[in-house]
Design a protein around this nucleic acid. Structure first.
Lengths: 194, 194, 194, 194
DNA sequence: GGATAAGCGAGACGGTACGTCCCGTCTTCCT
DNA sequence: AGGAAGACGGGACGTACCGTCTCGCTTATCC
């Protein structure tokens, strides 16, 4: 199996994990001062105290580096609790999603994604879809429990909810505060609850 | 006033309108082959048969050129009819919005906007807000006419609707077809109609 | 004719002669500290206060730059007087040749020539052959004047003379002083004079 | 004494002679396709199927590797017979010298020598001087035997002869054929023989 | 015969330089 | 004064090698 090979040792000097994390840290640091288009591999390498080739060796492009760095910090967040009450669970996830997206890293990633189909696919597969599946399940359980109208189109309904979050972060350039999230969720629920 | 000067004649040779439109045309043409980050002033100048300085003289930056080119082609579209039935009017606007955004020009503009606060403000002021105002008025009239629930939060509700459009275009990378728009609008209306 | 076009003005900004001479000066300066293999375009550009592209624009390679710089400073020297007595004329040319070759510029050029057939051809055509022709004429005149044996092979004889100069400069790493040149010329003449 | 240690056994794995000769072979092979400046340690290592460190361990630099490789193949050649007639002995040595120098290895070595004083010294000590001493002895014996003029300056005379060989190989880029060598030697002898 | 030492191929490391592309500015001549 | 052409100083690209350094492994001597 391939998975077994993943941990196999290779000939030659093994990669330097300290360099890897220095590069990711530098990427995050520099994104506070530079927009993605002005973030250069050369600057990252310098900031990380690393040769350019080391970055190209492991990520191949600025875009891949960005995605990995994002997932590395974001993957533990934006997770549905599955046991909290439906509304609370959604609320917490939206708050976390807002925080993760409305960061230098998040904004840069979205920028990159809009210009790069491959990156978009990677992002969907590794970040977006898993969370969408969970939200979907949650709504289905709400329907089973008789809390939510049975005739809603789950996909459309979720796109509206999360689309709203994205719009606020990216189109109005503002993160949502807790109060706004309450307003949004209330409007949202009003339309779908029994 | 500045506006008065706009039509004033100056000493020296006047601006060459042919060059202006050649530049905009070249911009649109090249965006079919290059993403915004790879679209260079030098390439545009060459494609348009124009000196680089001419572009810098009139637009100052790639971003401004992009916005002007977008508005030049998009400004006549995405306009509410105001006389058609509410649902039809929304539907037509969403179709046009989808078409305009899901183009090389539209996608490039959004990309640029996400990285450029000034450009975002310009885009809001000159494209987004006027249309949002119209949609807002439309909903208010619907409320007055007793078609739509009086207790909705108009801003939130519009963000959900348009946010959904944006999500589909940018996050799923697909333009909405007519059938999908019907589904979205139906879901949307179900939540807000009396 | 092509020659006429050479002086024709072109569209666009003309090349900056100050940059040209700054680059050549920098090349000569840096060759005092670096051997040719360690002389980098980047260092020359920095020393000359010039962009790398300017160097590549006009010379295309380090080798070409070197040759032009050499010819620029060496072309006025190593010229036969044609009126001085035969021996004096040869002597003066050998002194000048020694000086020109035993310089940072000269040594670097020879190094480059040994690795680069095209450069060798250029060097022959633009520096070596004209001088060889003159030396050849001089010997022929010496034969006509009854000063030099008529049965010598001029080519072989000249190669021996100049080969000796080259050997001393490059193989023994020492420039010839006036006394040595006297010794060489005496030996040389002894073999060919009547 | 140090010399005694040369054959002493050490702890640890002994040097791999197969690797040594693979490296030298690779050096010679690659010099057919690459000039010395473009011959890289990395390429040699790959061609020889060897780690880079092995090369640095034993030679320390590209220049040293080159010299050792040259001596390894050239040291048996260019040797005066000492018993053949004077002219034949010189002739044979010049032929062999020409062959050895006009090879990828020989040309590369001269290139390297011109840029590297240490290498020049090594080359003189280990290749050039021994042969020059022999040529010198030969001429002295010729003088003793009354074959050669007693008043020649042996050093100058030899530099002229060998300088000519070098000039032809390096400056005209052509090896000498047997006929040319005859011409040269005839001219040479005419000047020095009684 | 187990410990120690050095050599080996592989290949990652921090760097330097490559030759190219583009930046935004400038300098020429022409309209 | 605008415009096309194109050179300018500068910065970054992605690649190739530098000489050094870990790895796991092999092959020797030493105790």
């Amino acid at each position: 199996m391939n998975n077994l090979n993943t941990n196999m040792t290779h000939a030659g000097r093994p990669r330097d994990e300290a360099a890897k994390s220095a590069i990711m840290t530098a990427t995050m640091t520099l994104l506070k001062d530079f927009k993605f288009a002005n973030l250069t591999i050369e600057r990252i390498a310098k900031e990380a105290g690393v040769g350019k080739a080391t970055i190209y060796r492991w990520w191949g492009s600025k875009e891949n580096l960005l995605l990995e760095t994002f997932l590395d910090t974001a993957d533990d967040h934006v997770v549905f609790n599955q046991e909290a009450p439906l509304l609370d669970d959604f609320k917490q996830v939206i708050v976390e999603l807002t925080v993760v997206l409305d960061s230098a890293l998040g904004r840069a990633l979205i920028t990159a994604i809009l210009e790069d189909r491959d990156l978009l696919d990677q992002f969907h597969q590794r970040f977006f879809e898993p969370r969408r599946q969970q939200a979907s399940q949650l709504l289905r359980r709400g329907i089973d429990d008789g809390l939510i109208k049975a005739d809603i189109n789950i996909d459309v309904v979720l796109d509206m909810l999360f689309g709203d979050v994205y719009m606020n972060v990216f189109f109005y350039g503002k993160a949502l505060d807790t109060a706004s999230i309450d307003v949004i969720l209330t409007s949202f629920m009003k339309g779908i609850m029994i």
